[in-house]
Each structure stands twice: as structure tokens, then as C-alpha cells.
Design a protein around this nucleic acid. Structure first.
Length: 300
DNA sequence: TACCCGTGGTC
DNA sequence: TGACCAAGGGT
């Protein structure tokens, strides 16, 4: 796989487009702190910007530093997480704040390697925070970057189910040498994927690099190969776990088991979900068949 | 590796 | 209308 023609032009066009087209998001502003950027990256995992922004604002106002969050019960983080989904992320974000407070002097560690050791921080998030908060020159690859580079460079509509070695090599090879330029490049490619080179209906007429996009030049051929497996929902454990968590989030008092049992007729599934929530540290069982969000520290 | 983990909007 | 998708991580 080649990196396509004229990377210099690719850089220039994308960066110029970003300069005039970027959304004004609070975690991108100069006054955003590393902690604010860290929180945004965790919230944005599999969750759209429009849903994250209001929760992020409230979160940062309430807990402006890692130590502020670390001083709270993990259940408060889960409650403030609201309906962002995947509430284990809230628990991990709290655990990360505890780790920052205990091991990093209450600050967000500035290197990709250190970030990677924190709960809830994987390859993408470590690279994103190292780059966006600290200016480290590294390779940021998320679903947007993968889709944009697959189209522009490889000429296919969609990337493979998981990143290939070749894909990561291409992405790394396109990162500008200058750290400041590299940082803007990463956020710009992500932004292009988020608002122009979208998954379902790409807006190629508004794309700054349509004239050098391999997929566009090939006539936008349809996706070959098997359809990606969808996400089943109705009747799944995820649905019931979500319903159980919603009840517990809304209640400031412990919830009796009978209230939770009313959410499903399937006793086997009910018990499995409640047990798994307790095992995950999202729910704390109390004496007398009652449950609440976790007030104590332990969890995962 | 493949699967599990929430929630809501879009076409 | 429902299948697909969204700045992934953990196991």
C-alpha cells in the first residue's frame, strides 16, 4: 500500500480546511486543561459530540481537577455520567483520577506511555491526550482517521474490522514531522471524518481532498465483502443492565430488590445482569436486599 | 481474536 | 422502520 500521491498537498488541503471548518468545542479551546481534555476523550469513546458536550461542561465545573473527582464516591461519577452509555467508563474515569492523585501528584501524566497505564485508557486515548493536551508527536488513530485514510489512500469505502499493520504504518507515515503541525493534522483528519467523510453518506462535494481521494477517483465503489455485524439490542443483557442502572441513577436512596425485579420477567437474566453489575463495581449490594450506586472505593 | 459493554440519532 | 453508527477499552 502506498501513501498516495502528494502528501504535502494532502496536508495543506486538510489543514486549511480545518482552519475554517472546525467546530468550536470547549475541549479544543486554549483554556482547556489536560484534565478537561482527558475527560473529553473518555466521554467521546463511542459517544457522539453532541451528547458529550453538556455533560462535559457540568462535569468540569463540578470536578475541575483529578483530585476533586478522586475525593468523590465512584457512584457519584456514575450518576453524573447520566445517559452517555457504557457507564463502566465513568468508573474507570474515577479510577484514573484516583491514580493521577496517588501516583502523579494530582496531574494528568504527560506521556503516551504513562497514560496507557491508566484505567480506561487504551491505544487511541493515550495517543489523543498525549497529542492534544501535551503536544507529543505521536500517531492518533480512531474510527474517523481509519475511514478517511482508507478512502483517500486505499480507495475502499470502509476499513477492515480491526486496524491492520499496514493501516497503522500509513497513518504513522502521514504524521507531519513538526509536533505542532502533527497535533493539528491529527485533530483535522478526525474532524474531516466526523463531519465530511462520514460513514453512511459522505459529503464528497464539500471535501477538500476529493480530487486526490483514491476512493473518489475510482468512482466510489461500494463496499466489498461481508457486512459488519450489527449490534443486537432488544432483549439483551446490555438493555436490561441499562434499565437497572437508570433506576439506580435516579434514586438517591437504596433501591429494594423488588423494584429492580419489576424491570424484567426473565429471572435468570435479571440475576445474571444484577450480578454482573455488582461484579463490575457499578452496583453495591447492601444488607436487606437493597442496592445502590457504589459509595465505597474498590471496583474493578 | 472475538465478544461484551449503553444510548440515542439518522436515513 | 429498523439497521447502522458514534473520538474504544477490557478480557
Amino acid at each position: 500500500m502506498s501513501t498516495g500521491a502528494a502528501p504535502d498537498r494532502l496536508h495543506r488541503e486538510v489543514l486549511e480546511w480545518y482552519a475554517v471548518s472546525a467546530r468550536d468545542l470547549p475541549w479544543r479551546r486554549p483554556e482547556a486543561t489536560p484534565w478537561g481534555i482527558f475527560v473529553s476523550e473518555v466521554m467521546l469513546q463511542q459517544t457522539p459530540v453532541v451528547r458529550v458536550e453538556p455533560v462535559w461542561r457540568i462535569w468540569l465545573e463540578r470536578w475541575p481537577s483529578p483530585a476533586d473527582l478522586a475525593a468523590e464516591a465512584p457512584g457519584e461519577a456514575v450518576r453524573a455520567w447520566g445517559r452517555l452509555g457504557y457507564p463502566r467508563r465513568a468508573l474507570r474515569l474515577h479510577a484514573a483520577a484516583v491514580a493521577m492523585t496517588e501516583r502523579h501528584g494530582g496531574t494528568v501524566p504527560p506521556t503516551e506511555a504513562e497514560l496507557l497505564t491508566l484505567p480506561g485508557v487504551g491505544t487511541y486515548t493515550a495517543a489523543a491526550v498525549a497529542t492534544f493536551a501535551f503536544g507529543e508527536r505521536t500517531t492518533v488513530v480512531d474510527t474517523n482517521v481509519r475511514r478517511v485514510l482508507t478512502r483517500v489512500v486505499s480507495g475502499a469505502e470502509y476499513p477492515a474490522p480491526s486496524p491492520t499493520r499496514a493501516e497503522l504504518t500509513v497513518a504513522a507515515g502521514l504524521v507531519p514531522a513538526d509536533p505542532a503541525r502533527a497535533r493539528t493534522w491529527s485533530v483535522a483528519v478526525m474532524e474531516l471524518g466526523a463531519i465530511v467523510c462520514t460513514a453512511r453518506v459522505p459529503h464528497c462535494t464539500r471535501c477538500p481532498v476529493a480530487d486526490l481521494c483514491a476512493w473518489q477517483l475510482a468512482g466510489r465503489p461500494a463496499h466489498q465483502g461481508p457486512a459488519r455485524r450489527g449490534q443486537a439490542w432488544e432483549g439483551t443483557d446490555r438493555q436490561l443492565r441499562g434499565a437497572l442502572m437508570a433506576v439506580l441513577r435516579e434514586s438517591s436512596e437504596p433501591v429494594p430488590r423488588t423494584t429492580l425485579e419489576a424491570l424484567s420477567d426473565n429471572e435468570i437474566q435479571r440475576e445474571r445482569c444484577l450480578d454482573s453489575l455488582v461484579a463490575d463495581g457499578l452496583v453495591e449490594p447492601l444488607p436487606g436486599e437493597q442496592f445502590r450506586l457504589p459509595a465505597s472505593r474498590e471496583a474493578s
